[in-house]
Simulated assay, not measured.
Amino acid sequence: MPMPMSELQSCLREAFPDADIQVTDLAGDGDHYRARIVSPAFAGIPKVKQHQMVYAALKGRMGGELHALALETAAPT
């Protein structure tokens, strides 16, 4: 079962409340999204760790309800 965009956004907002979050449905199927997250939580943290933080926020849904997520993460400049 696909993950609704609103649920994805809710998970990300909960984990990164101070972030600027933009989510795009890439295929219109609820399974393929792009997320751009700019959060102070990412300051000084390598990209791999930033992405791990995002996957942790999804609480095991990646690979199940959510098939693909293209990530762009950054700290505010």
Rank of each mutant, 00 (worst) to 15 (best):
R61M: 14
V23E: 00
D20V: 04
L58M: 11
S6Q: 15
E14W: 09
Y33Q: 04
H67M: 10
R13D: 13
A19P: 00
M5D: 14
V38S: 03
G44Q: 07
V23A: 00
L8E: 00
G60Y: 09
E7I: 14
C11F: 15
P17S: 11
K59C: 10
A75F: 02
D29T: 06
A68D: 13
A41S: 15
P17M: 09
P76H: 03
A57E: 10
A35H: 02
L58V: 01
T73W: 08
A43D: 13
A27P: 05
Y55M: 12
V23P: 01
A35E: 05
Q22S: 02
P4M: 14
A41G: 08
E7D: 15
M62T: 03
G44V: 08
L26D: 02
A19Y: 06
E14Q: 15
M62G: 04
R34T: 05
P46M: 04
P76S: 09
S39T: 05
A27Q: 10
A43M: 13
L69E: 02
D31M: 11
I37K: 03
G64A: 13
V48L: 15
F42W: 05
M5Y: 09
P40Y: 03
L71F: 11
A43H: 14
L71V: 09
E72F: 11
P17A: 07
Y33C: 02
A27N: 10
A35M: 01
S6K: 15
A43W: 12
V23D: 07
D20R: 09
Q50P: 09
A75Y: 07
V54D: 07
A57K: 08
L66N: 01
A43G: 12
D29Y: 05
E7R: 15
H51N: 07
C11G: 10
E72V: 12
H32T: 06
Q22A: 02
C11K: 14
K47C: 11
M1I: 13
P17V: 12
P40L: 01
Q22L: 06
K47Q: 14
E65M: 12
A57T: 09
L58E: 03
D18V: 01
Q22I: 01
V23F: 01
P17W: 09
M53R: 03
L58C: 10
A15L: 09
